[in-house]
């Protein structure tokens, strides 16, 4: 497509619309803009990534908005990716996270993108990873990822963010004991937001107790120098505690670098992403084969063995999959 080169030129010239379109292409798993992404190994053109997750109503968007305000005061350019689930039935979605970030409307150094988690397996994190690389290549200093903590989404945030912030509030009534399994393992920082409401100290206390009980079983570089997730209290609506939150994020970043954990993570993520890409490509091939190849489907329905059909599809990928996968 000649559109690609034109798009690339506009992207490199700093055209916001080209960036927006490139993210759309990535979302639909179109490989044509992959050349615009810089190599994932840190250095120039790679933005720091902070992820925010938490239950609905914890004030994540307001918190992100407050953090953007702080970063803008420091002169940093910021991009935000806010994800919301799509309906598994219609594919439609209502994405409303921008509303709480209106303060930054028309600030050319702030880019906000709403993404629907379209429900195709692995799709979100692959698309998110690519979008993050695009944002870095475009020149944003900081990427903030925000997602509602439902289903598996917080695990996906942790899989791509350098620092994962889990947001809680005193007013949701379910208390710390209801905390979702796995959340302690992924949180690098806890925020107790809406700390102007009664009960925030209790939430922080319970959290502290729980963390001391569940000291993470660290491996690798982290084993000798484990990271202890701090608990920050904020009132995002009043910009309170945001400096402390940013200090904690920076401190975690320094920890990643000095402990050697950053390299480990980078290596692990490269491997994970590669495995996901393979799975994604295989899935595409499978859908294609089962959709187009009447003989294969016929055989499958006749003998009822998905494994035999899978083997056949994998064999085909072996012969021409790489070529097709590159698009």
């Amino acid at each position: 497509m000649d559109g690609e080169s034109e798009l690339a030129a506009r992207f490199r010239a700093g055209d916001i619309r080209a960036l927006a379109r490139a993210i759309s292409l990535v979302e639909r798993r179109d490989p044509s803009v992959r050349a615009l992404e810089t190599p994932p190994k840190g250095g120039e053109g790679s933005a720091a990534v902070v992820g925010f997750t938490g239950a609905p109503g914890t004030g994540k968007s307001t918190l992100v908005d407050a953090l953007v305000t702080l970063l803008r005061k420091q002169g940093k350019s910021v991009s935000v990716i806010a994800t919301d689930p799509n309906s598994p039935f219609t594919g439609g979605a209502i994405l409303g996270d921008r509303i709480r970030m209106q303060r930054h409307a028309l600030d050319p150094k702030v880019f906000i993108r709403s993404m629907g988690a379209r429900g195709h397996l692995g799709g979100l994190s692959l698309a998110t990873r690519e979008a993050i690389r695009l944002l870095g290549a475009f020149g944003f200093d900081q990427v903030i990822l925000e997602t509602v903590g439902v289903g598996q989404s917080e695990l996906e945030v942790a899989a791509v963010a350098d620092t994962t912030v889990v947001v809680m509030t005193p007013n949701l009534g379910d208390g710390v004991q209801m905390i979702k399994a796995g959340i302690l393992e992924i949180a690098d920082i806890f925020v107790v937001n809406k700390a102007d409401l009664d009960g925030y100290q209790r939430v922080a206390m319970e959290l502290r107790a729980m963390l001391s009980l569940n000291a993470p079983g660290a491996t690798g570089a982290a084993a000798s120098k484990p990271w202890k997730p701090p608990i920050i209290t904020t009132v995002a609506a009043r910009q309170e505690g945001i400096d402390e939150l940013w200090a904690a994020i920076e401190s975690h970043r320094r920890y990643l670098e000095t402990s050697g954990r950053a390299q480990e993570l980078a290596a692990k993520r490269l491997k994970d992403e590669t495995a996901e890409v393979v799975a994604d490509l295989a899935r595409q091939q499978a859908r294609l084969a089962l959709g187009e190849d009447g003989a294969l489907t016929e055989q499958l329905l006749k003998d009822g063995s998905p494994y035999r059909a899978a083997e056949e599809i994998l064999n085909r990928i072996g012969s021409d999959g790489r070529k097709r996968g590159r698009g």
């Binding site: 109503g57 968007s61 307001t62 209502i94 409303g96 509303i99 209106q102």
Partner: peptide, 10 residues
């Protein structure tokens, strides 16, 4: 007093 932004519920 500041200004208020609502959480939109659709």
């Amino acid at each position: 007093f500041g200004i208020y932004t609502e959480t939109a519920v659709i």
